[in-house]
Amino acid sequence: MAERRGAADMRALARQLLDSGSYGDEPVRRSAAIAEPLLVAGPRREPHSWLVGLTIADRLAAVFQFLLDGTVMRYSSYQRKAGDLTHGPPARDWLDADVVRAHATANARPGERIEDLWLTYDRNPDRVVWAARLRGGASSRTLFVAGDSVYEPPPASTFG
């Protein structure tokens, strides 16, 4: 219940910041729909931040990331130029857990099944990814899904 209330607050905050003119360009402010905020978990699955997608048609135009108290972490745009959605990934690749699950499944080994799926980040909070826990027999492993890119978590002591 508390989480749902938090999500509504984040959505309202995103709208307020767009309306203020401080973030986003005119096409986004005018046309973007604000998607349901998603909770980003930290490495121990603790709530870390909120990811709020801004979509235009079926594309992800930009995202807000807020700390749990509403502090703006970042506003990141996929547009190279105002109104240009060429580089915007399909919104469902990032915002729809079923589509993310399908990406992970496509990269599963024979006999592996997805046990768990959650939004988290790869080493740094600005590298938001979906984490899929796969189990195959007695072994399990994690895959990160970032849009259409699927990979195993890299070593922690690297930049990449």
Binding site: V72, M73, R74, S76, S77, Y78, Q79, D126, A146, G147
Partner: peptide, 12 residues
Amino acid sequence: PPNVGVITKWEN
């Protein structure tokens, strides 16, 4: 993200 990238304006 890979092959895409984002322009963050602003990072707090």
